[in-house]
Write a protein that binds this DNA or RNA. Sequence first.
DNA 1: CATGAATGAGCTTTCATTCAT
DNA 2: GATGAATGAAAGCTCATTCAT
Lengths: 191, 191, 191, 191
Amino acid sequence: MSKEEKRLEILTAAMRIMHQEGFEGFKMEDIAKEAGVGKGTIYEYFESKNDLFLEMLRFSTEQFITGLENSLATGTDLESKISNLSLFGSKFLSSHLNLVNSNISHLSLPEDSKDQIKRYWEHIYKTIESELAKAIEGGEIKPHIDLKMAASVIIGSLNQYAFKKLYGTGLPPEQIDHQAIARMILQGMQK
Amino acid sequence: MSKEEKRLEILTAAMRIMHQEGFEGFKMEDIAKEAGVGKGTIYEYFESKNDLFLEMLRFSTEQFITGLENSLATGTDLESKISNLSLFGSKFLSSHLNLVNSNISHLSLPEDSKDQIKRYWEHIYKTIESELAKAIEGGEIKPHIDLKMAASVIIGSLNQYAFKKLYGTGLPPEQIDHQAIARMILQGMQK
Amino acid sequence: MSKEEKRLEILTAAMRIMHQEGFEGFKMEDIAKEAGVGKGTIYEYFESKNDLFLEMLRFSTEQFITGLENSLATGTDLESKISNLSLFGSKFLSSHLNLVNSNISHLSLPEDSKDQIKRYWEHIYKTIESELAKAIEGGEIKPHIDLKMAASVIIGSLNQYAFKKLYGTGLPPEQIDHQAIARMILQGMQK
Amino acid sequence: MSKEEKRLEILTAAMRIMHQEGFEGFKMEDIAKEAGVGKGTIYEYFESKNDLFLEMLRFSTEQFITGLENSLATGTDLESKISNLSLFGSKFLSSHLNLVNSNISHLSLPEDSKDQIKRYWEHIYKTIESELAKAIEGGEIKPHIDLKMAASVIIGSLNQYAFKKLYGTGLPPEQIDHQAIARMILQGMQK
DNA sequence: CATGAATGAGCTTTCATTCAT
DNA sequence: GATGAATGAAAGCTCATTCAT
């Protein structure tokens, strides 16, 4: 197993532990056991627990961004893109601990980590906004809308709905009606 | 100061500490100092640190529900109601640590606390859904829409947008364009 | 209730708590509750927890000494005296926590308290020894025996046997064969 | 130093501390210092302070049982066996804190620990009783005597006398007249 | 390199004691 | 006097981190 592979093994083991045990149960010892390595070994690959956590954040966010880009690239029209994103987001939410989402920034992270998170989020927004800009050009959606606002509506709605379905009703990601939520986001609910 | 008042004093001190210091800095000693009481006194009012945390969750959620109900009661039409909710939600988000939101349920809470959180969320959804039902009767919005989905869109969009504005750009709650986000939720972005 | 009565009430409440809960559960709060007084009130009657404990020791030992003297006074011959003592000792053991016995002195008591315990034990020994001396004069037992040793055999045997019966087999004090143990102590087991 | 040796080192350090400082002074920190390890290390070998205490009880009792069996095996006739036991018991009493003896069972131990102690005591009694049974066969002592009672007389007398001598007069174990106490137990004090 | 036993700073929690009412 | 809410010293315990092997 190469150096990089072992690093990844530890990283994903840490993700699994966080997903299963939550914040409290997130112990270096358990991560080591889950990864099948010694406690000390983690420190060969990560400076500290905090560093490991930051790498998880980074890893998780990058995976999310990749999925986001794929979702948008795969779709034909905006509705299908959002629908794709809904499917991907639900899967992501159910398998990873949703480190990506919202209030992590509140956690007392070191300033520079907060900055990195911020940059990631800006990237996510930019990606969606440029997609929306294309949709405006293509005449799919209203011109003059606030792109940031629209991106927020998309992300927020999809996330909230997926969360509600996954944790509220126990539905698996595939059985969520992704098209319907995409349509509601685009068309609104008003008559 | 009555027994109940002191309890509340400790509770809100804990909220302030959590808001300022995040999870890491959430020490019993600091909470005591913030509340102006001795360390041992907290244990007269709360069984353990975990119990205190659960009470914060409950308190916070109840405050949110009250504000939600006020927001909906105050508005005339659905747009103003959502706009009100946006304002309230932003203020709530900026002052409280957003314990209410999303992925808290992932944290390793005892089963019964998870249940309570779930019940709170069901109440929140019910409240919004019944408001939407009235709006359908009043002809304001499309009949036959999925109420849960619509509620998710409202909550998710408002929360995401407020978060973006507050933490992304540092805007104060009052300067967010609540009417615009309400309108986008209702009318969608499609031509 | 007079001052002295209330003091006694607290003292006996403390004895009950110690008997039920053992050393670990011996809390000022519980003693106060058991005695039906406020926590602070205990301090009106006893200087400290340690003082209270010492008074329990004293009270308990004095009660034991009284019972010991009665037992010896009531009997006619030595066998009946020891038999009486066996009955009393068993009752005492089953109702009081046996503070009187053995290894209490090991507990880290202040020097002066250890001295007091020592003096009590000397009194107990003296009482038994003088009884034995009378029995020698009366020709009941061998002359020239070591009185301290004989007293030890009596106390030790009775206590051990009562303990075994009470806690090992759950027998009530009255159903122990006090005469038999008295006879074995006096006559030995050798042919 | 092997795992088992270190465990033993901590255990005996704890015994020394208990012996010197009594119950009150029995602090994890001091035990660690005495054992020459860090505070946390104790928890690598024992689950909790209570667990450590229980292991001390077990260890101590097992040592006592070993000594008891040796004492009985070494002697030729019953008198010398009891005399041996007296010597061993005195040494044991003066070096170990007498965790083995009497009223420990009163201490609020968890039910299963009480059971274990009980089982140990049954073993101790059985051992002595079978020795007495042999002595009956050998014609050394009266047939038909109550074996449990006789065992109680032996244990109780030896323990009480040793305690009196060691703590009352400060005599070292070797200078106690073990033969005399053995003889008195066997022959009684009656003419 | 990899390990996991050892560590102790730092946290939660307990409870005897005080003292304002 | 009597009370019990408040206190904080002191103790048990955890767990990220180190380092000898």
